[in-house]
Design a protein around this nucleic acid. Sequence first.
DNA 1: ACGACTTTGTGCGTTCGTTCACAAGTGCCT
DNA 2: AGGCACTTGTGAACGAACGCACAAAGTCGT
Lengths: 235, 235
Amino acid sequence: MSDEQETRRGIPDATVARLPVYLRTLSVLADAGVATVSSEELACAAGVNSAKLRKDLSHLGSYGVRGVGYDVEYLIYQVGRELGLTQDWPVAIVGIGNLGHALAGYAGFATRGFRVVALFDVDPSVVGRVVGGLLVRPLGELEQVVRSEPIAIGVVATPAGPAQGVCDRLVACGVRSVLNFAPCVLTVPDGVDVRKVDLSTELQILAYHEQRKALRRIVQQGDDAPRARVGGVAQ
Amino acid sequence: MSDEQETRRGIPDATVARLPVYLRTLSVLADAGVATVSSEELACAAGVNSAKLRKDLSHLGSYGVRGVGYDVEYLIYQVGRELGLTQDWPVAIVGIGNLGHALAGYAGFATRGFRVVALFDVDPSVVGRVVGGLLVRPLGELEQVVRSEPIAIGVVATPAGPAQGVCDRLVACGVRSVLNFAPCVLTVPDGVDVRKVDLSTELQILAYHEQRKALRRIVQQGDDAPRARVGGVAQ
DNA sequence: ACGACTTTGTGCGTTCGTTCACAAGTGCCT
DNA sequence: AGGCACTTGTGAACGAACGCACAAAGTCGT
Ligand SMILES: NC(=O)c1ccc[n+]([C@@H]2O[C@H](COP(=O)([O-])OP(=O)(O)OC[C@H]3O[C@@H](n4cnc5c(N)ncnc54)[C@H](O)[C@@H]3O)[C@@H](O)[C@H]2O)c1
Ligand SMILES: NC(=O)c1ccc[n+]([C@@H]2O[C@H](COP(=O)([O-])OP(=O)(O)OC[C@H]3O[C@@H](n4cnc5c(N)ncnc54)[C@H](O)[C@@H]3O)[C@@H](O)[C@H]2O)c1
C-alpha cells in the first residue's frame, strides 16, 4: 500500500472516528510524564483492541519502534496533524439557548484548535448579550460575518424547525462542515459534511439494551424487582 | 428467521442505532397527518437507503403491507415498543455545570419516556438550587436516592477527573446504563452499557474531512475549474 | 374475478471493519 | 557479536453491514 494511495484514498472512517480518542489518551499520558507507550498499553487506556490500534496508526505511517513502542509526544503530533489540528478552525454557533450557552462557554473547544468566533440567535432577549466572552449577534448578520471571518465549521443548536434553514444559509456562505444538535435530518449538497449529536437517540439505544437486560433477567430468574415502572406511553 | 430467534438474539446494533431516527421521522409524519408511508418515502425523510430501512424494520416483524406501505401510527407503536419506550425510564444526572443545566432543562427528555428524577453536584453554590424544576442534591445523597428511586440510566456530566469515580458509584447502586459526556473512557463491569457523547471528537472528525477537502482543492487548482463549485445535488 | 401495478421482505454478492497470528525489526544483556 | 525478549506492522480469515435486484404478496380499477 503506497503512501500515495493512502493520501488519495484517505483513512477508513472507523479509524478517523477513533483517532480523537487516541489523541486524548495520549495527552493524558504525556501529562503524566510518560515518554513512550506500547500499543497494548495505549489500546487498554483507550478501550480498544491492540491490533486495531496498531492497524489504525499504521494508516498514518510507521511511527512506532519495534521492541519499544510509540513515542508519546511524536505520536500526539502525528495524530494531531492527520486530524488537521495544527490549523486553527474558526467555529460559529447558531442558536444560543440552553445548549448553545453550554457550547459557547465550553473550554474544551479552544484546547484543540477550535476557536468559537461568532454566536447567532433570533431571540431579541439573547441577542446583544455576551456569552462566553462573545457577543451574540442577530441572525441577520450571519452572511456578513461568516463571509468576513472564514468560518470553517457551523454548529446548529436551534430547535429542529429552523435547523434546515439555518444550515442552508451556512452552506450558502461557504461552510462545508456542520455539527447538528437539532433532532432532525439535515440535507446538504455534495461536498458538505454533517455530523449529528443526538442525545435522545443515545438514550433510546440505552433503553433498548436496558429493556433487553431486564427481559433476560426475568426469563432467567422469574422474580426480580423491576428497575423501571411500567407507565404511560410518551408519544 | 423465527420470531423466537429474533427475540433471543436481538437486533443488529446498526439497526438499533437507526430506530430512533425512524421513530422521530415517523412522529413528524404523524403530526402532519400522514396515515401510511412507503419505505421509499420514509427512507428518504430519514436519510437512509430504502432497502436498509426495510431490512431494519423486518427485524421487528412484518408490519408493512405490500403494495401499500406502513401504517404510521402502528409503526410508531412497534418501534417504540422495541426500543423500550413504553416504559418510563428514571434518569439521574450527575454534574450540574453548564452542560448539566442544559440537560436538566431539556424538554426532549420527557417526550420520549425519559424522566429526570434526580440531580447531583458537589459544588456548594449549585447544591440546593432548583434547576429545571428539580432540586440539586449533594453527591453524598447519591446512594440513598438512586436506591430509593429505581434509577435506570445515569448521566455523567462532570469533568473527566471525577467521572470514573461517579460512574463506579452509580454502578454500585445498580445502575446498568450510563451516558457519559466527560471526555474520558469509562470502565465498567460486564452487563453495564456505556455510551459516550463527545463533542470534541465530532469536531475533530469534521476537521479531518475539512482538511482533506482543502487539500484536494489545492491539488486541483491548476486543472479545470468546473469541479470547484459545490454542486446542488439533491439527496 | 382478474390483471396491472405497487411495495414489501429477503437472498446474495460486495464492501467495510475487526481480530488473530506471526514474521520482521529493535534494544538489551551477556 | 550473538542470543533473547519484546513490539510493531500486516497478511489473512472472519464477521458485520450494505445495497441491488427480484419474487412474493398485496391493492385497486374495471
Ligand atoms: N438542551 C439539551 O440538553 C439538548 C439536548 C439534546 C438536543 N438538544 C437540541 O438542541 C437544540 C437546542 O436546544 P436548547 O435546549 O438549547 O433549546 P433552546 O430553546 O433553549 O434554545 C434554542 C435557541 O435557538 C434560538 N433560535 C430559534 N430559532 C432560531 C433561528 N432560526 N436562528 C437562530 N436561532 C434560533 C432560540 O432563540 C433559542 O435561543 C434543540 O434542537 C434541542 O432539541 C438540546
Ligand atoms: N459544556 C459543553 O459544551 C461540553 C461539551 C462537551 C463535553 N463537555 C464535557 O461535559 C462535562 C461537563 O461540562 P460542563 O461544561 O458542564 O463543565 P462544568 O465545569 O460547567 O460543570 C461540571 C460540574 O460538575 C460538578 N462536579 C465536579 N466534580 C464532581 C463530582 N465528583 N461529582 C459531582 N459533580 C461534580 C462541578 O461542580 C460542576 O458543576 C465535562 O467533562 C466537559 O468536558 C462539555
